[in-house]
Design a protein around this nucleic acid. Structure first.
Lengths: 199, 199
DNA sequence: AACAAAATAGCACGAACGTTCGTGCTATTT
DNA sequence: AAATAGCACGAACGTTCGTGCTATTTTGTT
């Protein structure tokens, strides 16, 4: 039987790293505390990455692997249903404590804006990828006359994304899940309006 | 002549502290770097506050003094105009680089969520105060039949606030001011809708 | 069973962190 | 003129950080 042990320690390290980073932030993720929480030595952890920046990038990639399934949708749904499916999965990802300290990408965006470097570049690439999927889904719904075309897809994406971000931030600060209900209400009403009057 | 020296160094320190904190975050605001950028000694700065937590709280208070004028509005305006005035000033505050690294309260919210303590408590109090003003302005506009009452004021406040937060985050990450135009578009359209059909 | 390779541990380093202490300056008060 | 208080300073503390080195252990292949 093939033992999966060889690759699994690095994976195991990164899963803990994502948890810690979601609470302490990417900067607060220290190799020392990471090693201790894994009952490993500092150098044992460090050797897997070679630098803290590489650890941070690998942590972002691991978080992306956890998050990215949200972006998929069953192909048998209509375009607008796929879009709604995407938003609902995104909300579930924020609401269920997938990451104990909230969306890693959002907290990382806050700490890394204004600090150029490869970690920031990598983060921006991942964030752009998620927003790109959102915009594309909106455009497809517009192309099939399921959403109005009076608004640019980018405008709609900004507003929907804003509700997701804001719900995450308010929830993390207050630990009150009502903000997800409020965000769902906002999203639902906007869909009602944007589906309403087709030319 | 009364010497303003005594209180002014502390004020001077805190003004620099707000600038640094807006870029590096409240945790990244180190007493060492703060002292160096002021050509002071570490202990000279430290003595004014006694602990880093007290420095962080004083920094938040200083940022609030800078921000809070946004919340005022000329009393001769109508309720809905006062609300629009508030949002426009808030956007200007985010857009003009009042703080070089973006809204201090937002980045602080991101780093402090999930880390209980007096700094987090103090931050939440300030944030709540701003949101409270926003909600009260909406309620007053509803009471005077200038905004529809089919939505709770808290729901409207969440959506408007989300646009502000999201514009700030996207701008700080991309340095692209188009996001403020998008946010203004979103706010304008929502007012059009919420003013539209009164009972 | 022996051995090469990879993974982990151990140790030391320089730097930066928050904090404390003793000590001068410089006003203000007695 | 003497005593006092407030500021700011430099030095040092113990700790933690990221990062190199060198052993030692574990693993996979013959």
């Amino acid at each position: 039987m093939e033992t999966p042990k060889k690759q699994s320690t690095r994976t195991h390290i990164l899963e803990k790293a994502v948890q810690i980073a979601s609470i302490e932030g990417l900067q607060g993720l220290s190799i020392n505390s990471l090693a201790q929480s894994l009952s490993m030595s500092k150098s044992g952890v460090f050797a897997h990455f070679g630098s803290k920046e590489e650890l941070q990038i690998a942590t972002l990639d691991t978080a992306w692997i956890i998050f990215s399934p949200c972006l998929t949708a069953p192909p048998d749904l209509s375009a607008v249903q796929q879009l709604q499916h995407l938003l609902e999965q995104w909300l579930n990802y924020l609401e269920s404590d997938t990451f104990p300290g909230g969306c890693v990408f959002m907290s990382a965006s806050s700490e890394l804006d204004g600090k150029p470097g490869i970690v920031r570049d990598h983060l921006m690439q991942l964030v752009s990828r998620a927003v790109f999927v959102l915009i594309e889904r909106i455009k497809k719904a517009q192309d099939t006359q399921q959403l109005v075309t009076s608004l640019p897809a980018e405008q709609m994406a900004f507003e929907l994304h804003a509700f997701l971000l804001s719900a995450n931030l308010s929830y993390q600060l207050s630990r009150d899940k009502q903000y997800f209900a409020i965000a769902r209400n906002a999203i639902f009403r906007h869909f009602e309006e944007w589906q309403g009057l087709n030319p």
